[in-house]
Structures are given as structure tokens and as C-alpha cells.
Design a protein around this nucleic acid. Structure first.
Length: 807
RNA sequence: GCCCAGAUGUUGGAAUUGGUAGACAAGCUGGCCUUAGAAGCCAGUGCCUUCGUGGCGUGAGGGUUCAAAUCCCUCUCUGGGCACCA
């Protein structure tokens, strides 16, 4: 009989887990769990292609964490679901000419099969499918709650329109002016849209960053995305008028170096201030700027363009007159849509001033000396104010305060904080999403659909291809659109936009523990017991999309009395990505790896172990199939060792190594350094089997427990073969290192002479410097280097190194 | 341009956070066992070398230190994010 035949063993344990409900919770189980631990991972979009090896990598790493927590004695709830709405599914459905409704179920069952095959401990009693009316009914409810909270607004706004997807896309979905889905150049359009007012939470989202245990790179991405800037709004009086131009600046200290003003092409004052001579030129410029699509406009390396509009402002500090220009390098959507240009200390202004021969003036000097020479580039660094009259000599920081203070007394300035974050546009002029639950009535205006009328069902459309009308295909189903106004009972028309997929995923984790009821979205008993999520693991690509939206919805629900907590995920870890031969894995490169064959060949345990062994989980690694033999033969040797193991007491030396291994594994697994966990287990097995010695059960049991998160099927099997008759995951078996046994008694340390390694000596913890030195001196190799020289200094770091400085 | 990661043998990677660089694997070479080997076992494997108890070596160059893959400065390259955000 084979000691280890993965296919049989894995089938055996998967069906046993199913029979015993090892990973399943009933509602009662959920309610009575003593040590609840919610282990969440990002749910997939169920594509037709199935899970690729990158998905398996991510889910295995998250499952390892969940199983580890389980071995620590927690009641680990680990659900899985499917994020099946959205443009991605819809475009695929259009391509193959099938309604997405008919496509999704088979994709989901294929995903489920794959996810079961890798042996992750998902609770298949608690799943979500965002396209199920029993789910999206509650997504619509989420919208209504945000509406009640005053966080939903319809307004006409310039939005990113993808001409290929024929829909609006969020700022977060525009990558360098291109649609993230199809890479078409995004255009600017003015359309009425539904917005969620996430900007009201900008500061809260920023403040919360201090208090959550997340991967630092994810937090830094959110930080940059929110983009807080501190500065001031300053009014520049317009010469010959009773009005002024308000600008936002983060550098009030450079105001004396402001030599002209710039308005964004869309700025309302342009029309008012342009004089007759300039009118034609300005109109032409503004027209041309409006025609530019967002991609062209955001292209940074484009030469600066613009024109003088024939007006002047007065510098409120120096009194100097400054011409007012219009240029598309100033953006209407940020700040006040107008700037004071300081070419001496801003790179963009410098470039503009150089192009149009506008004066460039130094007002900040690195060392305080007033070097009057020509500036050849903008100086943006720190320094001291010069050429600024009474303010000369102040540092940048002092100057910022002093200028604002002086202007505040005249009412010309106010301290101001601004954010780059924009409101979240959730309208999508597409078919495959939850209809936004709003009804328009000629008398009552837009009215929210009453909760009792949810869900607003998405009709089954034969023809769901979007057109260029700017309206959703739902608008073509007039039967569906026509309804009664919930307020007055008159004729109403349904909103035909559907919501962004990111609304589906902004709250899905809250639904998982509540799926036993269809009466309410959130079962408060379950919410209190299981939320917030204890650990969330997922891709870093969602740093500023999903993860920010989920925080926003949670905060809004907290403020609205629905949730008691304000942050959804206590701990978040971004996993690394897998490369193939050092290159990113992607469909376009044609190097996608579907894991099914690999698992069929090697078994799930070996594949899991191999993937986790590739590199640190948070950094990813390079997938090289030949490397799978290492983990495979490790499992073989372990199975062999168990088969041969005796009932004798373990060897003392081996048990010491065992406790050191427990120590290392326990600390590395906490840091998700799964690769070194596995290498520590391998090293220990090498010690156990050294010289072909027969090992004992006592020496092997803990290693099997520590391996269980990685290779759960084999661990169960070996546990059973060692004579245990309950599941290894049942009773919190994670071993505890005995500090006495883990302690190393004698160790070898290096001996250096003048920093160069010349030999080594064996010492104990209590070896003194003098003892170490005499040990070193009696070492032949070291002694040669001490001949006929004086010892000048001895550095002895117990347990680390002995360095003898001679000369 | 800015921000964040990173660069270590033939390859994936390790290094107690300043203390014996290359753990654990893969690959390769040789051997044992075997009808067989994706099984098991043993040995070797950074480079140079006059083979010495020698020299060199963690992207490049400089610095700090008794001691640097690790800290500091300058630069190069790779991956990712943001991008005219005033």
C-alpha cells in the first residue's frame, strides 16, 4: 500500500468534513460560538475561465490563516461568495451572445467546485451571490439607508464616459485617462448622476487610518488618494471692479512671488472679466479646452497653453498688479478653480511663465541670502523668505502663518483644508446591476422606493446591448419603467441606471453571518457577535476602491445607528502577487495558469504547500513548476516517518529542536511568513530523520499540527494514523513551546580578528568575555592571526560574536 | 515628475532587525538501493585561487562602525500606485 496517495486521502477527508459539517455553522452555531473569529477574504468575480493560480494562491494563504486561528481554538467563520454583477460579466455575456442571468450559475458552480477541491474550510451554508434578488434587494436597501442619511445626491456633473463601454466610470476606474476595463480613452460628459457623498467622510477616513491594523502600503495608498492639503483661500481684488478672485494655495508664504493669476477654462468669472479686445481669443481658447477629452487634458508632458483675458488683479500683500490668464493646466474641480501663479516656486507656473515671458521672482531662498540671479528652475524646497518686505527672514512655515494672519484681519484669507477625494458616482448606464431604487414623479420629483417594495427586480431583457443615448438599456423596457408614484399614487417612471458593482461589495461581508434570514439585511444578533471582521486578506489593487468604499458605508451606517462600530476590518493584509518567470501573469501575456491539472497530478495539499513556500505571502513569488517537487517529497517523507514511528519517548536533542521549531513557526505564521514556516518544518523533519534514525510519535505530533493549515487533508490522515479519532481541527491543538526546552545551551559563535572571520568557538550563555577570549586564543586558526600583534580591544556580544581588534 | 515596494548563487528565496551571508527548496554532478523512479538515502554545488589556516563576494559608487545585505548619502535598474491636486 502506498503511504501517501493524495487523491484518495483528499477525497476521503473532504467528504468526511462535509458529512460531519466540520466547517459549517447553523444559525444556532453562529449564535452560540464562544470564541468567534471572522476570517474574510475577497470574494471573486466568477469568470467563465474559472479560478487561476493567482486566485488559488490568495485563497490558500487566507485559508491557512483561518485554519491556524482554528487550531488556536477559535470558532472560525470563513464564508465565500460571488461578486457577479458588473460590466465585466456583462461584456462577456454580450460577446458570447447569452444573457448574463443564464451564464452566471454555471460559472458559480465551476468556481465552487474548484474552491472545494483545494480544501479550504469555507462555510457553504453562508454564501452570497450579488446577482441574487435576495441579495441585491438589500443592496438597494443600503442605497435607501444612505439616502435617508442625506448621503445620496443627484446632480449634473462632468463625468468620465467610456465610449466603448457606453457608461460612466468612477474616477477610481480611470487609469491614466483610460477605462480600466477596455482601455478606451475616457471622454468628459455632463450627465445627471447619482453620487454618494464620500467626501463628507474624507477627514474621518483619514483619521481612521491611525487606528486600524492594515498593511502599511494599503493605508498609504488610501492616504494619497484622499489627498489632504492644508493651506488657505485668499481673495485677490480685481482691478476696477468690486469683486475678487478667490484662490486656494498651500504656499501663502510665496504670495509676494505671485506674478499673475490663472483661471480654469470653466471658471464662471472668465466670461465676466474678459475685455472686448481679448474676447475672441479667449472664447476660442475656452472652446478648444472644452473639446479636449480627459485623456488629452491630463497628459502632463503637454506644453502649457493659455491666453491673457484682459483683466488685472491686485496682490493683497504687495499691491502689485497682476494679469489674469486662462489655462487648462488649472482644474475647475479642485480648489476654487483659480490659482495665484508663483513661477519662482512652482514647476508648472515656471513652465507657463517661461512660455509666455511672464516675470519670475524669487521669494524663498535656501540659505536666506538674497541671490538675485536669474532663476533657471522653480525652487520648491524649504528656506527663508526674501524679497517679501516685512516678511523677509521668516521660514516657510512661519511665513505661511504670518501671511494668512495678516490677510485674515482684512477678511481676505481663511485657513482651508482641501481633499483630492471626489464624491462616488454610482450611476451606471448599463444592464447588469441592481436598479437604483428611485421613482420619478412629475409632482413629487425623485422618490425613493419604499423598503417594503424591494427588491426592484432587474427585468430579463432579450436585448441588453448599451447604445450611445447615455441611457441604460432598461430605459427601452417601457413596461418596466412605468409604475406608480409611491407618494401620490400618480404615474411614475423608474430610474433606469443601475448601481456600480462596488456598492454590492461595499457591504457583502456584513451579510455573510446574516444569510439565515430573509427578513432583514442585517440580523443584529449576528452583527453584534461577528462584526467587525477580525481579519481580511485580499489584493492590494482594491486599496482605493473597495476598501475605501467599505469603510465609508460602515462609517455612514455607524452614524445612522445601524452599526455599533465604525471600521469594518480590524486587520487587513494585502497578499503579494504571483509572477511566472519574473513576469506578471495575465491573459494578454498568455501565461495564465489554470490549477486544475496541477491539483489532479499532485493533489491539493502539495499545491497549497508549494504556493505558500514560494515566498513571503505579503510579497508574492515566482511560480516555477519544477519547484513543486520539494514540498511533494517533504510530504512523502513525513508520511513515511509516521508509518515507521515508534511509541518510544522522543530523543531529548530532537525534542529541543522541536520546541525551537514551535517557537519559530508560531512567530512566523503570525507575520504571514508562510515560506519560513514551511522551511522550519522541513528543517525539523531533517533533524528527526537524520542519519536514517527511526523517529517517535512524540517527535512527530506537533509538526503535523503545525502543518495542518497548509496541508489539511494529509494532516488529518496522519493524525488519524497516529491513533486519534477526532478531527485535528476540533480542539485547539496548536502546540506551545516550552521555553526551557527551546533554549539553546551551547552555541557556536564566530570569532573575528579585525572584523574578518577567522574561526568559531562553542560557548554557553554564561561564558564571560575572558573565557571566550581564551577559547579563541586556543583556537589554532584564530591564534595565527594574533601572533606578534597587540590586542587593542575586544568586543564580545554574548551569543553573537567575538571580535578581537589588533594592531 | 511624485509616492510606495524591491535588487542576495544557475533559480525561488533565508539571514535572530548591525554580529559566522547563502537556511529551506529547485536545478545540476556523482554514488547507494531498485525491474523501474516525480520514491527513499548519501555526498558535492557563490566566484577566484599559486589549493594556503588565502583572496573576493548581497545592483553601482562613497560614508559611518570593532563589525554593514541590514544604517546614511549619491546613482542605476525593476515592479506597482498617483499624476498639471496649486
Amino acid at each position: 500500500m502506498d503511504t501517501y496517495s493524495p487523491i484518495e486521502i483528499e477525497a476521503k477527508w473532504q467528504s468526511r468534513w462535509d458529512e460531519l459539517g466540520t466547517n459549517l455553522f447553523s444559525r444556532d452555531d453562529l449564535a452560540s460560538a464562544e470564541k468567534p473569529y471572522f476570517n474574510l477574504m475577497m470574494f471573486p468575480y466568477p469568470s467563465a475561465e474559472g479560478l487561476h493560480v493567482g486566485n488559488i494562491y490568495a485563497y490558500t494563504g487566507a485559508d491557512v490563516w483561518g485554519r491556524y486561528q482554528r487550531l488556536r481554538g477559535h470558532d472560525v467563520f470563513q464564508p465565500m461568495g460571488f461578486d457577479a454583477f458588473g460590466i465585466h460579466s456583462e461584456n462577456y455575456a454580450l460577446k458570447v451572445g447569452v444573457n448574463p442571468n443564464d451564464l452566471i450559475p454555471s460559472n458559480i458552480s465551476n468556481f465552487t467546485r474548484q474552491l472545494r477541491r483545494i480544501g479550504a474550510m469555507f462555510d457553504w451554508n453562508h454564501t452570497v451571490d450579488t446577482t441574487d434578488p435576495n441579495y441585491y434587494r438589500w443592496t438597494q436597501w443600503v442605497f435607501l439607508k444612505l439616502f435617508e442619511a442625506g448621503l445620496v445626491e443627484k446632480r449634473e456633473a462632468p463625468v468620465n464616459w467610456c465610449p466603448s463601454c457606453k457608461t460612466v466610470v468612477a474616477n477610481e476606474q480611470v487609469i491614466q485617462g483610460l477605462c480600466e476595463r477596455c482601455d478606451s480613452a475616457v471622454e468628459q460628459r455632463q450627465i445627471e448622476q447619482w453620487f454618494l457623498k464620500i467626501t463628507e467622510y474624507a477627514q474621518r477616513l483619514l483619521d481612521g487610518i491611525e487606528h486600524i491594523d492594515w498593511s502599511s502600503r494599503t493605508l498609504s495608498a488610501q492616504n494619497n488618494w484622499i489627498g489632504r492639503s492644508e493651506g488657505a483661500d485668499i481673495d485677490f481684488p480685481i482691478v476696477g471692479r468690486d469683486e475678487s478672485i478667490r484662490v486656494f494655495t498651500t504656499r501663502p508664504d510665496t504670495i509676494c512671488g505671485a506674478t499673475y493669476m490663472v483661471l480654469a477654462p470653466e471658471h464662471p468669472l472668465i466670461d465676466v472679466l474678459t475685455n472686448d479686445e481679448q474676447r475672441e481669443t479667449v472664447d476660442a481658447y475656452v472652446e478648444q479646452a472644452k473639446r479636449l477629452d480627459l485623456k488629452a487634458r491630463q497628459y502632463v508632458d503637454r506644453p502649457k497653453t493659455g491666453t491673457w483675458i484682459g483683466a488685472y488683479c491686485e496682490n493683497p500683500i504687495t499691491g502689485a498688479q497682476m494679469p489674469v490668464w486662462v489655462s487648462d493646466y488649472v482644474l475647475i474641480e479642485y480648489g476654487t478653480g483659480a490659482i495665484m501663479a508663483v513661477p519662482g516656486h512652482d514647476e508648472r507656473d515656471f513652465e507657463f511663465a517661461s512660455t509666455f515671458d511672464l516675470p519670475i521672482k524669487r521669494v524663498i531662498s535656501r540659505n536666506g541670502s538674497n541671490n538675485a540671479g536669474l532663476m533657471t528652475e522653480a525652487y520648491v524646497g524649504d528656506g527663508v523668505m526674501v524679497n517679501s518686505g516685512e516678511f523677509d527672514g521668516l521660514t516657510v512655515a512661519e511665513g505661511k502663518r504670518a501671511i494668512v494672519q495678516k490677510l485674515e484681519t482684512n477678511g481676505l484669507a481663511t485657513g482651508q483644508v482641501r481633499y483630492r477625494l471626489h464624491d462616488w458616482c454610482i450611476s451606471r448606464q448599463r444592464y447588469w446591476g441592481p436598479p437604483i431604487p428611485i421613482i420619478y414623479c412629475d409632482d413629487c420629483g425623485p422618490v425613493p422606493v419604499p423598503e417594503s417594495d424591494l427588491p426592484v427586480m432587474l427585468p430579463h431583457l432579450e436585448e441588453f446591448k448599451p447604445d450611445d443615448s447615455g441611457k441604460s438599456p432598461l430605459a427601452r423596457d417601457t413596461d418596466w419603467c412605468t409604475t406608480d408614484c409611491p407618494t401620490c399614487g400618480g404615474v411614475g417612471t423608474r430610474e433606469t441606471d443601475v448601481s456600480d458593482t462596488f456598492l454590492d461589495s461595499a457591504w457583502y461581508f456584513m451579510r455573510y453571518p446574516c444569510t439565515d434570514t430573509d427578513e432583514v439585511a442585517l440580523d443584529q444578533e449576528m452583527v453584534k457577535k461577528w462584526l467587525p471582521v477580525n481579519s481580511y486578506i485580499g489584493g492590494h489593487e482594491h486599496a482605493v476602491l473597495h476598501l475605501l468604499y467599505a469603510r465609508f458605508v460602515t462609517m455612514a451606517f455607524h452614524d445612522h445607528g445601524i452599526l455599533e462600530f465604525g471600521e469594518p476590518f480590524e486587520k487587513f493584509r494585502a497578499h503579494g502577487i504571483l509572477t511566472k518567470d519574473g513576469r506578471k501573469i495575465s491573459k494578454s501575456r498568455g501565461n495564465v495558469i489554470i490549477p486544475d491539472d496541477l491539483i489532479a497530478e499532485w493533489g491539493a495539499d502539495t499545491v497549497r504547500l508549494y504556493l505558500m513556500f514560494l515566498g513571503p505571502f505579503e510579497q508574492g513569488g515566482d511560480y516555477q513548476e519544477s519547484g513543486i517537487r520539494g514540498p511533494a517529497s517533504f510530504l512523502d517523507r513525513l508520511a513515511l516517518s509516521v508509518a515507521e514511528a515508534s511509541d518510544d519517548k522522543g530523543d531529548e536533542q530532537v525534542l529541543q529542536a522541536m520546541h525551537r521549531t514551535i517557537d519559530k513557526v508560531s512567530s512566523d505564521i503570525e507575520q504571514l511568513k508562510y515560506n519560513t514556516v514551511i522551511s522550519a518544518l522541513m528543517e525539523y523533519l531533517n533533524v528527526v530523520r537524520e542519519g536514517g534514525r527511526t523517529c517517535t510519535k512524540q517527535e512527530l505530533e506537533p509538526i503535523i499540527v503545525m502543518l495542518a493549515p497548509f496541508a489539511p487533508h494529509l494532516a488529518e490522515e496522519l493524525w488519524e494514523r497516529l491513533g486519534h479519532n477526532s478531527s485535528i481541527f476540533e480542539s485547539g491543538l496548536w502546540p506551545e513551546a516550552d521555553p526551557e526546552l527551546a533554549k539553546v545551551e551551547t552555541f557556536e559563535i564566530g570569532v573575528q580578528v579585525n572584523g574578518k572571520l577567522r574561526g568559531s568557538i562553542f560557548v554557553t550563555e554564561s561564558t564571560t568575555e575572558n573565557e571566550a577570549l581564551s577559547l579563541a586564543q586556543s583556537n589554532e586558526r584564530v591564534a595565527t592571526h594574533l601572533d606578534s600583534v597587540d590586542v587593542r580591544k575586544v568586543i564580545y556580544v554574548p551569543g553573537r560574536i567575538l571580535n578581537i581588534v589588533v594592531g
